[in-house]
Design a protein around this nucleic acid. Sequence first.
DNA 1: TTCATTTTTTATCATTTGTTAAATTTTTTC
DNA 2: GAAAAAATTTAACAAATGATAAAAAATGAA
Lengths: 186, 186
Amino acid sequence: MDISIILYLIYKLPEQSKLALQNNVSEIAFQKGHILLKANKIESNIYFIKKGLVRAFIERDNEVTFWFGKEGETVISMKSYVEEQPGYESIELLEDCELYELKTENLKKLFSEDVHIANWGRKFAEKELIKTEERLISKQFKNASERYLELMKDHPELLQRIQLGHIASYLGITQVSLSRIRGELK
Amino acid sequence: MDISIILYLIYKLPEQSKLALQNNVSEIAFQKGHILLKANKIESNIYFIKKGLVRAFIERDNEVTFWFGKEGETVISMKSYVEEQPGYESIELLEDCELYELKTENLKKLFSEDVHIANWGRKFAEKELIKTEERLISKQFKNASERYLELMKDHPELLQRIQLGHIASYLGITQVSLSRIRGELK
DNA sequence: TTCATTTTTTATCATTTGTTAAATTTTTTC
DNA sequence: GAAAAAATTTAACAAATGATAAAAAATGAA
């Protein structure tokens, strides 16, 4: 997915602002397994996924996957980006990826200079917020089985591309529980 | 809490922008029990809490409280605000409240005109996003008992001000389970 | 292909949380 | 302050999910 489309899907920018933003973006590729962002570190870049698939995970006693990103999505350590503090998540590439890279330092400069880009940044945060809020509510209302069906309905392609251990973790259950749920659905 | 402080806690604005924003804010008071925002409705105002306490809840088969707002916090139907679509939550006043009211229509006009206010709006969404993300992660990592202890630690005053049925719902468990957890902690 | 490794499923038992109903405590109203 | 209403706790049993181990299936490397 081209960068101009990715930016547009967040918020339509006037031509000049769009170019100003795109001029700060460079292309880069990494292989499956690469760790793109590291936990407990202030990250200085954000990425847009041109092609491929990644996951965000947090490690404590166990490891929990809490986000998947595919083509068109933004890879970001939110805590680094918002508070300039070490983030809690690492990002691992689940497939070979082509990415667009943007230095947050440059982005923040553009935010202060260009009202359209500031509103683009606002829309980005707002849309991410809606998605996160919907997941929180889903978790509050639905049991594991219902959340699995919801994922199948909303993102069926992820089930083809991601191994079930990660899916289970994302759903907030163990892999064994997910297998049981899948078994019961047959 | 005064409006100037509330706005400042989100993002420091230059004097002129601050006044432009404050000029669109009016004061209003409602009694405990009042429904400030209604689910399935496109809401046209947002509110800042000067004094008092509110909850956001969603009704389906059962009713789930998923947010509490106290002095200094912003009351908003995020779906209305971001997507101009009917929101899923209602807001009920848990105490008599003094509020600052702001028409989203006016706010959006200011976003397009004033880069500082656009960045204020960006920061607002970003900070809400961090809070929501942290709750989602807490839900993924911790069991009900741990989440209760976390709430006691981070917001002890809420436990004094809010009845346990709402707290249990917020934690994602039944009131009976919460009582059991409290009993075991003694 | 064949063997080794990884992923997924199945089974068993333990723990957590839900459901329902009743008892107790607290708050509100008169 | 007494009665009524609302909120909280307790108890008993049911259902969902976790933990551990082992079996089966799928994938990858030589």
